[in-house]
Amino acid sequence: MDRRDFLKKGIAVVVVGGTAGGGITRLLSGTNATVVRPPGAGEENDFLAKCIRCAKCVQACPYDSIKTAGLGDGASMGTPFLELREIPCYMCEDLPCVGVCPTDALDPTLTDAAKMLLGTAVIVDREACLSLNGIRCEICYRVCPLIDKAIVIEKHAHQITGRHTVFEPVVQKEVCTGCGICENACPLDDTAIAVVPTQRGDKAAHYDYLRKQERVEL
């Protein structure tokens, strides 16, 4: 290969590679940070860097909870994710999905399912929630694998009737693993309780001290 030939090929590689690279980088920027990852997955960009899309975790999941992202999911293409409303994570004791991961994209130091963090459940629709309307639903509380720890019932007087009791399911964010069993079980057509990305950072933790206080009975 003479110098002229080498130059021509070099320029071709740079132009074509650069265009393809630019396109792919653009594609990568469309990541979806709200997607629920399997147990042990770290921060989203870290997970995307470490996951080699081998689908071993998808195959290892005995409940078919873990699905594979397809075309149009940007950098997530081929990565595992969960749709908790459809099939939640049943928190297998031996965490088979974590065990088969070849690349530490799912943290192998996670051995206790109760310590996993897929997200945090919150009541997303307080108006629709049957329990908050004074009905004895409390299904999310009953199905919670960490009942009385991750979801507790707080009783207070019904604001409108004044003579009934509301049994309010309250998520304890320090305990909740984001398994989504509550989200899956909510009897409404559109769930009133859902797993959302766990709040991070100082600002979110600022008022934690308040919630840890003994409640003052009025």
Binding site: V13, G17, A20, G21, I24, T25, L28, N45, L48, A49, C51, I52, R53, C54, A55, V58, Q59, T68, A75, M77, G78
Partner: peptide, 28 residues
Amino acid sequence: VVLVLSFVASVPVFEMVSPIGAVTRAMA
């Protein structure tokens, strides 16, 4: 290009689009 992009974009670029991955994932 794949190796450079994987480093720059911090994503295993070929595994993302790999037809070998896609077809064996579909099988598995």
